[in-house]
Design a protein around this nucleic acid. Structure first.
Lengths: 193, 193
DNA sequence: ATTTAGGTACACAGACCTGTGTAACAAGGC
DNA sequence: GCCTTGTTACACAGGTCTGTGTACCTAAAT
């Protein structure tokens, strides 16, 4: 009915495939040939949708930049369930660390736009923590939000290397201690054990 | 006097240069040509000392695998000064994250030996924390050591992206809280402020 | 029926990569 | 003098990479 329902399908397919391959194998390790071949299209078609590999990289990272959706759950539960979600993702065998950190590590200071989006992503996550902490009346919400972000990224880095989902649990336990220390009331023993 | 004082100089020069370039620009981003050219030697000479680029990569990571030297300082001070050292390294403009994490991120699951040495490195650091914590009689030295390692790697990842040495201070403050919570006596207010 | 948009096949340029082969050169030990 | 060891210069093989050029095809819109 609408004149363009199936039209953007190709661009999305390219992006989705690039995302998967970039993330799993590394950006430099995946050539545009590989992406096109994986979809079964010609390289020319790919370049008709994205002017360069750099544009594809930017689109890949932009696609990964998703905000956590607002929730009605209690703030403290939102914060702690972050680490449960991490543990679940660590257990999936296609988890390969934070795409933004990996991109910066791989592309170095060379690429300014990559770093820029990575910084924006990390800060947005920190602010998400901070706003919840403010709701909770936590002492030093700014500093504590940073510390929680450290625990998240630390567990991601450790899991990337060790492949051990327990890293998320360790982070959650540390987060619980830090929250309590900041005067936040945290529900019982679900953290221990 | 000794017959081979200047002999291994070349191999060391190659390794040192490879280390610097691999670390700063990424392993895949640096070709053997570039390394040889940087030293001013021929590519042939490089290949006379290392049979392949993979061997050079392994030597690079092995070179980065240094144990913290034993110290007479009090254990708690050793632990906390780790974060001061991190802050100093973050402030240097040639800091580009953890070479082991970066290598795993860049080379992916593809390379088993790289992951192996990265795991060994991370575990050796965790054990270093653990042994000090045992000396201190901390509760749950194993778990706490993991948590401290998370804070280290988290601050490294955050600094890699943001270039903000304050990440090390945030990690130190979190570490202080966790140590106190485990019953470790930590000296005064040098952490706050 | 014709135009137009998007896709295909395929070759190619130009760069860079790892790794090898070869012949010549320099310096110290014997 | 001779021989060994390390280095150099340089070409090259064979592969991969990004990106372009071109001519053809198909299907939908008009």
């Amino acid at each position: 009915m609408a004149p363009l329902p199936a039209k953007p399908a190709m661009k999305d397919r390219i992006l989705e495939t690039a995302d998967r391959l970039f993330y799993l194998q590394g950006i430099r390790a995946v050539g545009v040939d590989t992406i096109a071949a994986e979809i079964g299209i010609s390289k020319r078609t790919l370049y008709n949708h994205f002017p360069s590999k750099d544009a594809l990289i930017s689109a890949y990272l932009a696609r990964r930049f998703v905000q956590p959706r607002p929730s009605d759950k209690p703030a403290v539960e939102q914060i702690l369930s972050t680490f449960d979600a991490l543990e679940r993702r660590f257990a999936a065998k296609d988890f390969r660390g934070c795409p933004f950190v990996n991109a910066v590590a791989e592309l170095g200071g060379e690429d300014k736009s990559v770093r820029k989006i990575a910084i924006a992503f990390k800060e947005s996550r920190r602010l998400w923590f901070r706003d919840l902490l403010i709701q909770l009346g936590a002492a030093d919400a700014e500093g504590l939000a940073t510390q929680l972000a450290l625990l998240v990224d630390g567990s991601i880095a450790q899991d990337l290397v060790r492949n051990d989902p327990a890293m998320a649990r360790a982070a959650k336990e540390a987060a619980t201690v830090l929250l309590r220390h900041a005067g936040v009331k945290v529900g019982g023993g679900e953290t221990a054990q």
